[in-house]
Amino acid sequence: MPVETWLTFILGFMILGSIVALEIRDILSSIVAIGVVGLGVSIAFLFLQAPDLAIVQFLFEIFALIILVRAFVKKDYHIETPARVNGFMVAISLLVLIAIFVSSISVFKLLPPFGQPLFETASHYVNYGTEETGAVNLVASIILDYRAYDTLGEVTVLFTAILGTITILRIRKGKDAGRKGA
């Protein structure tokens, strides 16, 4: 079977998983459904021959699952009141989605065929990457040599994120302690 068939199958599976994650009542089942979506992305990366991304996506999915399970699985989190469905709003949303889809069909026709790269820079990386950087793994040569500036930005984002998390949660802890003392 061609890759596109597999990708379509995985995409359908992921859409199904996200619908289940949204609609199911039990929060643990919802978390598992989110995991299905993430692992689907990982498998799709494998089919697209991107093992680096597949590894990272797989690991981050497990990581996120552990965080979610650890954060949400408690007795008091399990109770969830069923949301009331407004039929009028659902109809409007569906109409808007269909309108966007129909109007974007002409854009889909402009897309390059599957497997044909749009950027010519990529072929330079593939042809000269190992020669110019000495790295056999082309992904490493791109993210740490050609586009190392991007990676610096990512490191900064991660640093800011952990800084913000620790700062906010420490403030909260201090407040709680103050309330206990008062």
Partner: peptide, 30 residues
């Protein structure tokens, strides 16, 4: 081989490991 790519890899690895663990640690404490 590959010049300073392995060094940058090591730095990123240590950084990612520590920050992700710290995030989970702080959240679990909360």
């Amino acid at each position: 081989s590959a010049g300073n790519i392995p060094i940058l890899n090591i730095l990123i690895g240590v950084k990612v490991a520590m920050s992700l663990f710290l995030v989970v640690w702080v959240l679990a404490g909360l």
